[in-house]
Design a protein around this nucleic acid. Structure first.
Length: 286
DNA sequence: CGTGCCCCCTGTCAGC
DNA sequence: TGCTGACAGGGGGCAC
């Protein structure tokens, strides 16, 4: 579920409550979300301080250490239905329905600072604890961050030119560019006026530049709105994201295209829905 | 190697 | 009121 804007929102929401806290007393309720074994995770988290809270692609990354340096990273991929929730010590909030991992937090003085809960009904998400070298290898396996100032339209254009995949599949491939999922791929392709099934290599340079601009615009807007809640996604504080109302085509089959009023069409390929305006995004095969 | 398909799992909703 | 099938924001594995 969560794509870049949702993961970014969660990371921002965890930064203040987690930074400078210490992890202790990990409870693993569903071992299938833990990569590398429950015991290794519990032992690896125990007593480590949270130095940083970051994001890489769709992943939330906690930089941890026993001393002042980051010597482990907890990488959380939220899959389709994962949430990372911060709970205060005795907020009377109802307990989450599908907790998978619960990690205790303490202050420098050792007082309770609540808990960090990984919640995931479908359990497609994954938690992994990585050393600096395994983190580096993992991060290098992902593509560039599309919102980084160093990500230029030329990078996108050159990547597209080397692939025969449909452009939506290309955008969803985390090795090409990190953090784009089905919602924002469809939204960006709409803004760029490109049919999702267009073979990547057939997209001319000026269209690739348009796609680069559209992708960054959509992602920035969605971060601003704290992400899109369709169903499961919540911020670290349990709030919904507000970008759902701004979606132009995703999930809007039959609704008028915001640009030309033609009904939005839904097609399926690679086992996933794509939404498009058949007039603004003409089928290259037609 | 690149690409596409299936599957992991649970919840929800539409249609009968 | 069930029951069934389709579908859901992701990604790993495998066959070709």
């Amino acid at each position: 579920m969560p794509e870049l804007p949702e993961a970014e929102t969660i990371a921002r929401g965890l930064r203040v409550p987690l930074t400078g806290r210490r992890l202790s007393g990990t409870e693993i309720l569903h071992a299938d979300v833990v990569e590398g074994g429950s015991v290794a995770l519990s032992r690896g988290l125990e007593g480590r301080w949270v130095h940083r809270v970051d994001r890489r692609g769709k992943n939330v990354v906690l930089g941890l250490g026993r001393g002042p340096r980051v010597d482990r990273r907890l990488v959380v991929n939220l899959g389709m239905s994962g949430r990372l929730l911060h709970r205060e010590p005795d907020d009377g909030a109802p307990p989450p329905t599908h907790p998978a991992v619960r990690i205790g937090l303490t202050t420098q003085e050792g007082a309770s600072a609540g808990s960090l809960i990984y919640h995931d009904p479908r359990r497609f998400g994954r938690l992994r604890l990585l050393t600096p070298s395994s983190y580096r290898a993992w991060s290098q396996s992902l593509g560039p961050e599309p919102l980084a100032p160093t990500y230029r339209s030329r990078d996108l254009a050159e990547g597209l030119a080397r692939s025969i995949s449909p452009v939506r599949s290309w955008l969803l491939d985390q090795r090409r560019v990190a953090g784009v999922g089905n919602i924002y791929a469809n939204e960006a392709l709409f803004l760029a006026g490109i049919h999702p099934g267009t073979p990547s290599a057939s997209i001319p340079g000026h269209r690739a530049r348009r796609l680069h601009r559209a992708l960054r615009k959509v992602l920035r807007e969605a971060v601003e709105a704290r992400g899109t809640t369709l169903r499961d996604y919540r911020t670290a504080q349990g709030w919904e994201g507000s970008y759902g109302g701004a979606l132009r085509v995703y999930g809007r089959e039959g609704a008028p295209c915001p640009r030309c009023r033609t009904p939005v069409k839904r097609i399926v390929f690679s086992n996933r829905s794509a939404f498009l305006c058949p007039r603004c995004q003409p089928d290259p095969d037609a």
